[in-house]
Each structure stands twice: as C-alpha cells, then as structure tokens.
Amino acid sequence: MTLSPIRKVFQGTADRRQMFRMFDRHAQRPNRSPDDGALYRGEWFEIGEAEHDTMLDILPPLWMRSDMFAMREFLTGSVTSVFFKLKIDDCVRYFHGYCDLSDRASPGCMRAAIVERESRPVRAMTREERLEHIWSSAHDDYRGYAGERFSKHLWGKRTVLFYDYQRGTVLKLLDQLTDTEILAKLPVHLRYLPDAIAA
C-alpha cells in the first residue's frame, strides 16, 4: 500500500479524541515496518487551538518556527508530526501534518498545500478526500486491510464494512466504493458538497 502525496484526511476540525485517533490511522496495517513512512507522509487535518497548544506543551519541540513546530518523537523513520498555526482568509486556524524531515522542504511544502487547499472559495471535496474522511472516521472494527478473502494482488489494500440492502454487511475495498456507497458512508453535512478538482 503506497499513498504519499500531500492529502487532507479529515473534513472539519478534529476534536481531541478524533485527533488522537488519527495520529495512527494505519495502526492495523499488516506487516508493520519502520519503513512505513509513505503511509503517513503528507497526511494533514485541521485541529482546534486547544489541541494545538496541548501538543506544544507535551514535550519540548524538535524545532519551532513562527507558524509551526515539529514533535521530537518520530512516528516512523524520519516522519514526525508538524503542527501549524496559519492565517487563512484573515482567520487563524490550526493543523496537524506528517512531514518527512529527511526532506528539509517538507514542512514548507505541507504549509503551502494546506493554505492552497483551505483558501479555495467554494467548499468542496475530491473523491480522494471523501474516501480519506470515510477511512478516518470509521471505527477500527469497521475498517481494515484486505487479506485472504481477496485475491492475493489486493492484499494490504484498505477495506471498510458496508451495508448492502440485498447482501447485508459486506467487506469492500475502500477505493472501489461507488459514488452512491460513498454518499451513504459520509455524514449528512458532507454528502452533497460539490466535487472539487484535485490540485
């Protein structure tokens, strides 16, 4: 399973509980390895000011700049949490992202991507953002990774449980959900947002 480019993984502002759940969205992945940085690298989501300040107070940061700081503890390899305090459209907002610090430009690229994405005039979501939100908000019991039920070439791909009116509860590959199934899995307030063109 390879992800990597910079991507928004949750719509709205994550509260404390949601933030901690999303710190390791891939905890159930098979064959965990210190080289799993591509799963996390580039993920970002919005948090509140209190959550941002809590994380700043936990440990002294690895480094700190005017609008961001990096956590001292690395998640995997050279990937760690970077927290942002950004002014977007005259409003101060807070974000968490996973940056690969082996690339010195990674935090700056993450900041630029967040500002670009959140500065769009129309609230919209790409198909990928819809799928990431479904994955982020699904309980661990309802999401997982393809195994022996699937063809071997699909092993390790993300799966979610889906209720089908004709077949009952079925396990489906996340990236193979139809548009109708995606709408059914999203919360009501996100279902009818227009499609955004991926940047």
Rank of each mutant, 00 (worst) to 15 (best):
D57R: 15
D57I: 11
I58S: 10
I58W: 13
I58H: 13
I58G: 07
L59G: 05
L59A: 05
L59H: 09
L59S: 06
L59M: 07
P60T: 04
P60V: 07
P60Q: 02
P60L: 05
P61Y: 01
P61S: 07
W63I: 00
W63A: 01
M64D: 06
M64F: 04
M64A: 08
R65I: 01
R65T: 06
S66P: 07
D67N: 14
D67T: 14
M68T: 03
M68R: 12
M68L: 08
M68A: 06
F69R: 08
F69D: 05
F69W: 10
F69L: 11
A70M: 15
A70G: 15
M71V: 14
M71K: 09
R72T: 13
R72C: 11
E73K: 14
E73A: 15
E73Y: 15
F74Q: 04
F74W: 07
L75K: 05
L75W: 01
L75T: 05
T76Q: 04
T76G: 00
T76L: 02
G77C: 13
S78Y: 10
S78Q: 13
S78H: 11
S78D: 08
V79D: 02
V79K: 04
V79F: 05
V79H: 00
T80L: 09
T80M: 08
S81D: 04
S81N: 02
S81E: 05
S81R: 03
V82C: 00
V82M: 00
V82K: 00
V82S: 00
V82N: 00
K85H: 12
L86P: 00
L86I: 13
L86R: 02
I88F: 03
I88D: 06
I88C: 01
I88Q: 03
I88G: 01
I88V: 09
I88T: 01
D89Y: 08
D89T: 09
D90I: 03
C91L: 11
C91V: 12
V92Y: 07
V92C: 06
V92G: 06
R93I: 02
R93W: 10
R93N: 10
R93G: 03
R93Y: 02
Y94A: 04
Y94S: 09
Y94G: 05
Y94I: 09
F95N: 01
F95W: 12
F95D: 02
F95T: 06
H96T: 07
H96F: 14
H96A: 08
H96M: 07
G97H: 03
G97F: 03
G97A: 14
Y98C: 06
Y98K: 06
C99Y: 06
C99P: 10
C99D: 06
D100M: 09
D100I: 10
D100T: 12
L101R: 00
L101T: 08
S102K: 15
D103F: 13
D103K: 12
R104N: 11
R104F: 15
R104V: 13
R104S: 11
A105M: 10
S106Q: 08
S106M: 06
P107Y: 03
P107A: 02
P107I: 03
G108A: 12
G108D: 12
G108M: 07
C109M: 09
C109Y: 10
C109W: 05
M110S: 02
M110V: 03
M110A: 01
M110P: 02
R111W: 08
A112G: 12
A112E: 15
A112S: 15
A113Y: 11
A113V: 12
